[in-house]
Design a protein around this nucleic acid. Sequence first.
RNA 1: GGGCGCUUAGCUCAGUUGGUAGAGCAACUCUUUUACACAGAGAAGGUCAGGGGUUCGAAUCCCUUAGCGCCCACCA
Length: 702
Amino acid sequence: MVPEKFLKPYTPRDVEPKIYQVWEKSGFFNPDNLPRRHTDPYTIIMPPPNANGSLHAGHAVFVTIEDLLIRYQRMRGKKALWLPGADHAGFETQVVYEKKLEKEGRTRFGMDPEKLRAEIMEFTLANKSFMEGQLRQLGASCDWSREKFTLDDDVIDTVYDTFEKLHADNLVYRGKRSVNWCTKHQTSLSELETSSEERVDPLYYMKYGPFVLATVRPETKFGDTALAVHPNDPRYQEWIGKEIKFEGLIGPVTLTVIADEYVDPAFGTGVVKITPAHDPNDFLVALRHNLPIVEVVDQYGKLNEKCGKYAGLKVEEARKIIAEDLERAGLLEKIDPEYKHTVKTCYKCERVLEPRVLPQWFVNMKSLAQPVIQAIERDEITFYPEHYKKIMLHWLTNIEDWNVSRQIVWGIPIPAWYRDDEVRVGKEKPEGDGWVRETDTFDTWFSSGQWPFAALGYPKSTDFKTFYPTQVMETAGEIIFFWVARMLMFGLYRTGTLPFTTVYLHGIVTAKDGQKMSKSRGNVVSPLELSDKYGTDALRMALTIGNTPGTTTALYEDKIKAYKLFANKIWNITRFVLENCEESPLEKDVSYTETDTGRVQELQNLIREVTKNIDEYRFYMAGEKLYHYVWHTLADDIIEESKPLLQGNDLLAKNSRKALLLEILRTCLLLLHPFMPFITEEIWEHIPVPDKKLLMISSWPE
RNA sequence: GGGCGCUUAGCUCAGUUGGUAGAGCAACUCUUUUACACAGAGAAGGUCAGGGGUUCGAAUCCCUUAGCGCCCACCA
């Protein structure tokens, strides 16, 4: 009897949640529970989604690809572990939460840090559990029993150990450096967390005593601590080392003229005012020449008390007013009104960042990068797509020290203590009185960068010994520097072994018009809604086929609809096979006709091609081949030619064909399972299979 | 200022080491034949951005031009 459900179109809603429960109850997501044949470990560490909202299309891509890999390897007999996680996502989450506070008419500033932290924790944990449900809906066959959160105690301990080791190795230091400060978010940011924006601003030529010099920021002049010229500039030789005195806007000014290679004689007049507190280049000059650092812009982007009557003005207002006053005082020679330059902005709020000199923690990256550069040059890491190798090498080669201090509460507190001029690193308060704990937290990527070994319980756990290094890191190309590069460096630094040897980078998912999905454009599609509407299998196929590594992929409903039809096609093929082959003898008792032998060979070619394509990370091609075979070979040709055979009188041909149809269907389900796990498992339950077990742990066809 | 990617059928994109151009969707014609109308059969559609070169042969390799997009970069 053909089950009644096959007489109706396929309805994913009735099937998917039920099937996921079957899988989860089976325990086979946990590699420890897999049958004995699963010996060699195969590990993927899931990029932990930020627990501050819903899963988006990009998450659906990683679930699709990583689940495909894991299911494939599990079927091939690997001891497959896909380790799920959730990321507290420091600054990102804090920004999301601040927006929520704003909507409620509240603000984080002035809030008790402990209370704020507790509130964000509650928010994050709620999102985390919500997202876990969504990952299940997308069919993720990950081992929930091993799920990690980036704020788990053991993870924090590992992060602290790394920090202490870096400190002991002189690879981390606390120093006053020029950092990128966001006046809205009230924190410093790393170089990667900045964007740049091209601007057209006036370039002011100001008179400084005997000199004229060009600047776009006249408002920082009160923080000047020197003037600089190029050491070989013939125009200014006599001034080098001399002091100049002149009357400024708020009183007399005395500045020494220094010589530094940094000055470009061809720009402006060849004379630069050095304002170390508010310009990163000037800061470096100040370090070389031991210049004082005078802060005149405060943390809110306002001029401070050192600016006389201009105190309290915002930078932008001050600039205009000061330019006018300079003009009136005859101190402005000219203005170039259309000077093109770029400014650094906060990648979250797009406000112009203020360079500020603050005591912060920095990681010396050059020595961490060096061994990774060598490993990449020796091709110990394979990148998909290939050209990321070059991009990675370029970035690692030009890497700078990394500011890991953030002035936000939502993060792992930096384990450091201060007393007068003393600095101690460690989780516990040092002996003695007067120690004050650091209030800054780590850049979230500092801990994320340690995720592969931290999540596996380095150094003591057996999981670490069994599952590290992992096989492949699959993630978004846009976080290659933020995350992938740091994992390689920290992984090698802490464990002596690269955390993975294959990096697969998928591209951004866009809307059909190729535009990036964003709330403001209103073109965001929710993968969960699409899954509800068309089924997860269809969504996953749409995200697999036509999706090549490193390039953007357009996701739109028509495409998903096509794969919903494909699911239905498989459903109806099954119905045909069940209706016709119920009393089929087993293959071993049947000898195939010549035609059917040809069909078996054709099927074997398919197996070979699909296997090869998956092994070589061409999932889109494997998926397309399967789609094409199932629809246009199996359904259109084989089933059509079977009809007269099955109704005819040639018993040998009939039995051969029945056995063939069943074999093809079984093989297709096996091959399709990593792509469309739900419908294949559901059908598997209803067709005759010798020694049947769950499809998810059945053997991949050879 | 460097670096990278893309440009193939109306739309979205494949095309693995060079061997007579592919898929899905859309549009067209026919067909309700007991797996499926969430279907089938058939036809149509491209000088593979332009130009040059290597080769017996190039969408595929090299050079070049143009358009689009991205990343990196401390010049006031």
